[in-house]
Design a protein around this nucleic acid. Structure first.
Lengths: 343, 343
DNA sequence: TTGTATGCGTTATCAC
DNA sequence: GTGATAACGCATACAA
């Protein structure tokens, strides 16, 4: 059964295609009764308009796309909800599009812009490593949201919203130092990372330096590349390895809550108490950090603020109320049961 | 700047549009050199074909869509990865589409089928409560994957892959009973639930009955409707309420791992030891159940098997190698530290 | 209030 | 190996 087109419906109803189109799209210039009649036929025959044809014909379209890279990040899931609600509130429709690990998000974006006649884009996650030229290919307003950015990008002309990963990481390590810890291990990203992983590592490094603590290679532990990045499993593996090697440390700073939980598990399993034998700190402020036992000290990202601001900026860009805004939100260090003073 | 079309490229290259199309789509009937020349121009001008126009014209398309309802379920995230890999391995392309809570997944599916010329669909999550007629509207092979199904659906003609929620729930409660527990609380879904929530509840009920334990209304605790369903927060709230009310129980069976973790937190916070004072059991087999301390006893869903089988069935349907397959996988009860014998 | 005709950007058909 | 042209299904300017 070949599927129905608007022409079929028009024939069945004995009207012109325009009239059917008007009925479907709630146009004003149509009498209530013909509209009702047409809609009845549409329902009965289960007619669904072809979006490709629609998009092809359309010029505008009031839709915003959120491009997400790295869906395994539970952090993003919440954000997606916020985006959806925020965008719907503006009477725009919302498309979520997942970008593959090895895909180029700019290319994907350009494809979508043409296909869906997008009004704006929000990039969520991923590591933006594009040249200025590449970014300028995007002919539609966009906002980078918690996208890892090398500092070299700071002078580019684009908008972004995120936290200051360097400063927040510094804040956490500074806090641990002030608790009296001197041997603070970090579960970091790969040393090749040029994104948030690097920034968080640099914050760690600087804080130690400012406290007069020498960097110890043994305590710098990049996550395992063969395991899922930022996962509990990874935090567990790295910590277990440290323990097995007999490395001494009194605190672990994991650059994500998930890894902090994995680290905690490894410690507890080895019979070490948290925080009596070892303090554990995470990053992100996920629910699970709170519900873990002991509750994990973390840096809580202001998710709602970030999402709302991203939407605000995007719509300002769309309405040409602004050029570019680069905003870093302060995050909160939440002291919980997993960290304590060094005895 | 109006964006380029295939005609512009053809003009620039001094060739016909057909030739450009052939170059872009790797058609055989084109000389290597003209192809190279065209591709060069395409790159230089940053031309991106319009997918709407493509889809409109195309007849086939080798693409499979995964429709997901309820993205907050961490369980699904893993599955999506498996689907993507499996579908790519079959040389099909993969579309992930999120279905809104209040949207009808069948309607959404039909829209996508028309728009993208889908070859098949996998429904992930959600509660299928459609009439037979509605399901039959789908003119494309599809597989329901861990979609909650009322038992009344059993005779319908469709394919699905999942675990036997009733039997697995029974297994867990039976296990708790055999540990000597008599006052087993359940953190269940809403009593209006007609999906997995209901099945898991019925398993609980039957197991108690078979052990000669009377149902106690005080121990049946539907999750809070004003909180996110199946969330840690919800498990926490429900358990805290039970504790505050002074209800007596020696075990809690939460119908999701997340809620089990929330429940554990409430218990530990109240000074109750797990499992000495109270056993806790979850459902799903998420990583976090293992990494929680104490590790939580759970029913582990065979995610990979489910995903692989779903793909296998879908492609069999596409190639007409089968009619309908309804497969329930056995899940594994993993005994961990959160459950113990009743003293 | 309704219908007819055109074009959106691409691919498929067919002729060269 | 290449190019002109007709669809694909819809929305819209314009005519009625």
């Amino acid at each position: 059964m070949a599927s129905l087109t608007i022409i079929d419906i028009a024939k069945i109803c004995g009207v012109g295609v325009t009239t059917v189109s008007r009925a479907i799209n709630n146009h004003p210039d149509i009498s209530e009764e013909t509209k009702a009649m047409i809609m009845k036929v549409v329902k009965e025959n289960n007619y669904v308009p072809n979006n490709s044809a629609r998009n092809l014909k359309r010029t505008d379209s009031k839709t915003i796309a959120v491009l997400i890279k790295g869906m395994n990040n539970p952090f993003f899931i919440k954000m997606i909800d916020l985006f959806e609600k925020g965008i719907q509130k503006k009477k725009y429709s919302f498309i979520l599009h997942r970008v593959d690990e090895h895909q180029d998000e700019i290319d994907v974006a350009n494809e979508l812009v043409k296909e869906k006649k997008l009004k704006g884009i929000i990039f969520l996650g991923g590591y933006l490593s594009h040249s200025k030229e590449k970014l300028e290919q995007l002919m539609v307003p966009y906002v980078l949201c918690t996208v890892g950015l090398s500092s070299e990008f700071d002078n580019y002309n684009y908008s972004y919203v995120s936290i200051d990963d360097y400063a927040e990481s510094y804040k956490m390590v500074d806090y641990l130092c002030k608790l009296g810890h001197k041997r603070i291990a970090i579960i970091s990203a790969s040393m090749r990372d040029r994104s948030i992983g690097q920034l968080r590592y640099l914050g760690y490094k600087q804080a130690l330096e400012d406290h007069g603590i020498a960097l110890d290679e043994q305590l710098i532990r990049p996550m395992k590349e063969h395991l899922e990045s930022y996962s509990m499993e990874n935090g567990y593996a790295v910590t277990k390895e440290m323990i097995d090697e007999g490395v001494e440390f009194t605190a672990i700073f994991a650059i994500s809550d998930s890894m902090a939980i994995g680290a905690s598990k490894a410690l507890l399993e080895a019979g070490r108490m948290i925080p009596d034998h070892c303090s554990v700190a995470g990053f992100d402020g996920l629910d699970m950090a709170y519900y873990y036992h002991p509750s994990i000290t973390t840096i809580k990202q202001p998710i709602s603020e970030i999402a709302e601001e991203a939407i605000r900026i995007l719509f300002d860009l769309i309405h040409k109320k602004t050029t570019h805004v680069q905003k870093k939100f302060p995050a909160e260090l939440i002291e919980r049961a997993s960290t304590g003073t060094m005895k």
